Simulated scan of single mutants.
Amino acid sequence: MAEHPHATLVRKGYEAFQRGDMDTLRSMMTGDCTHHVPGSHPLAGDYKGIDSILDGYYGRLHSETGGSFRVELRDVLVDGRGHAMSVHRFTADRQGKHIDESGGIVFRIVGDKMTDLDECVADMDKADDFWT
């Protein structure tokens, strides 16, 4: 059985992120796409618009960790009504700290583009401590 197109889109996005392929990611999001980052640390908040997401958030993930931020996609779940949910593991090193944690993203998809990304983490305190 073929994979649902929304799961394929999410997998393609994770692969592009891992390669640092911002052009592919840009083509997968609507212009007003928003990425919501949980927590009370300096990277937490809402990144609205492609440039804000790619440069403001993803760029900071790279720069804050000296390029060590990595994410491993574990699974993608879909509802067939415009939502997909990823489950992943992420690791990074920053200022003498290391994080190895579970997380995920709830994607809202319209047509073949991501419109909204709600990020979740398994341990909010651990994430806040790492990024602070």
Score class of each variant (00 low, 15 high):
Ser40Pro: 00
Ser27Asn: 10
Val76His: 06
Asp112Ile: 02
Asp128Ala: 07
Arg74Gln: 14
Met28Ala: 08
Val10Ile: 11
Phe90His: 11
Leu43Thr: 04
Lys113Ser: 03
Met114Trp: 02
Arg81Phe: 12
Thr115Arg: 06
Gly56Glu: 01
His88Val: 00
Pro38Glu: 02
Val10Met: 01
Val37Glu: 03
Asp79His: 06
Trp131Phe: 11
Asp116Gln: 12
Pro5Val: 07
Asp116Ala: 07
Asp123Ile: 08
Thr115Met: 11
Met1Ala: 12
Asp125Leu: 11
His6Asn: 14
Ile53Val: 08
His36Phe: 08
Gly80Trp: 10
Phe69Asn: 04
Asp125Thr: 10
Ala16Gly: 02
Ala2Val: 13
Val121Asn: 03
Ile50Asn: 05
Glu64Trp: 03
Pro5Ser: 11
Asp112Gly: 07
Phe17Asn: 02
Glu119Ala: 11
Glu119Gly: 00
Tyr14Glu: 02
Arg81Leu: 14
His62Phe: 11
Gly66Ser: 09
Asp23Val: 07
Gly45Asp: 04
Tyr14Asn: 01
Leu54Gln: 06
Met29Glu: 04
Thr91Leu: 13
Lys113Met: 08
Glu15Ala: 15
Gly66Leu: 12
His83Phe: 13
Met28Glu: 06
Thr30Ser: 13
Thr24Glu: 12
Ala7Asn: 07
Val110Glu: 15
Thr91Asn: 08
Asp79Cys: 05
Val10Thr: 03
Ser68Val: 11
Ala7Tyr: 02
His62Ala: 14
Ala84Trp: 02
Tyr47Gln: 02
Tyr14Ser: 00
Asp118Ser: 08
Ser40Arg: 15
Ile105Met: 06
Trp131Arg: 02
Asp118His: 12
Asp100Ala: 13
Arg70Asn: 09
Gly31Ile: 02
Asp128Gly: 04
Leu61Glu: 01
Gly66Gln: 08
Gly104Cys: 13
Asp55Leu: 10
Asp100Ile: 13
His4Lys: 07
Ser27Leu: 10
Phe17Arg: 02
Lys97Glu: 08
Gly39Glu: 11
Gln95Met: 12
Phe17Glu: 03
Lys126Pro: 00
His88Asp: 13
Ile99Gly: 05
Leu9Glu: 05
Phe130Cys: 06
Glu119Ile: 10
Met124Gly: 00
Lys48Cys: 06
Ser102Phe: 13
Asp46Gly: 01
Val78Arg: 00
Arg81Ser: 14
Gly59Lys: 01
Arg11Ile: 10
His36Gly: 00
Val121Asp: 00
Asp128Tyr: 04
